[in-house]
Simulated assay, not measured.
Amino acid sequence: MISRAQRILFIGMLIAVVSMATFLIRLRERAQDRLRALQDETPVEEPAGAAPESVLLLMPNDTDGSLLEIRRDLPMPQDESARARVLIETLLHLFREPKSTHPIAPAAGQDSSAEASESPSAGQDLDEVFLMPIAQPKGSPPVKEEMAVVDLSAAFAAAHPSGIEPETLTLLAILGTLHDNLPTITQVRFLIDGHAKDTLAGHADLTRVYLASDTATGAQ
């Protein structure tokens, strides 16, 4: 016989699971709605001759587990979602470079030649980035805060080295790069190929919402 306490615990766990699934489904629907709106409102290409901006990228160093600060001048779009995408694509592209301090091998069928590596998007490591406003408590000062939903590709996850340290460094590098350049992003949620996954490559937890400032290893 199942005790009353066990039944209550089971029902509570079931409600929690259903609530989380509903939240993730709604989160994805809102992100897709925002993407469609951006596609309708935003030009496919940025205006020619946009002045490059200095951005800060946090590059993982597997040797000592640190995050290295790298400055790059990049032509940046005006839309914040598009800016976040450029930042992450550029960062992930650095992972693929021959002398990377956080190397990730090319995915199956991916061309690693110099020509293919000229564009940050050549690796197809990132599917999309969505920004969603975070509601503030009633009565609190109006502060703009956003959650970034970072949808990494299945190919990137498959090619990523397995291990708690390399996986965590990848997540911390993305968190820090977004927060340093787009401080209104205070939370980050990770998806793989449009779906919620337990881990990146077997270790780093992808079921939680991360604080964008949660770069525990620190930058140098």
Rank of each mutant, 00 (worst) to 15 (best):
D73I: 03
E53Q: 11
L152P: 07
R7N: 11
E128C: 10
P183W: 04
V149T: 10
R28P: 01
V209Q: 04
G65P: 02
S54K: 08
V209N: 08
S54F: 01
L14S: 12
A16L: 08
A50I: 11
S121G: 06
E146V: 13
L131Y: 00
A201G: 00
A114C: 02
E41Q: 06
R189W: 01
F190S: 01
A31Q: 00
E46V: 12
A116Q: 05
Q32M: 03
R7M: 13
V86I: 09
I15Y: 09
E128A: 14
L175Q: 02
D111R: 12
P161N: 05
Q187I: 01
N181F: 11
G12M: 04
L172P: 10
F95S: 10
Q124I: 10
E53V: 05
P106I: 07
D151A: 10
L182A: 04
A116C: 03
A16P: 04
Q32P: 02
D127I: 09
L131K: 02
G49L: 07
L182I: 12
A122S: 15
R71F: 05
L91S: 07
L56I: 08
P166G: 03
T217N: 02
V150P: 09
A157P: 01
D198K: 11
L191W: 05
K144G: 14
P137R: 15
P183V: 04
A135M: 15
T168E: 14
D193W: 01
L24M: 15
T177H: 00
G65R: 11
R189C: 10
A31T: 01
L94P: 06
D111I: 07
I134K: 13
A201D: 00
F10V: 15
L182G: 03
G163C: 14
A51T: 15
I134Q: 15
Q136D: 15
E69D: 08
D64F: 10
L9H: 12
N61E: 08
L200Q: 02
P106C: 11
D40I: 01
S113Q: 01
N181D: 10
R28E: 04
P103W: 11
H203V: 00
P141Y: 04
D73N: 09
P106H: 10
A107W: 13
G194T: 03
Q32W: 03
P77Q: 12
K99A: 13
P161S: 05
Q6Y: 14
F10W: 15
V129Y: 12
I134D: 15
G176Q: 01
Q220D: 12
F130C: 09
P60D: 00
Q220M: 08
P161R: 06
E167V: 03
T215G: 07
E146C: 14
I25H: 12
G123T: 13
I2W: 04
P161W: 04
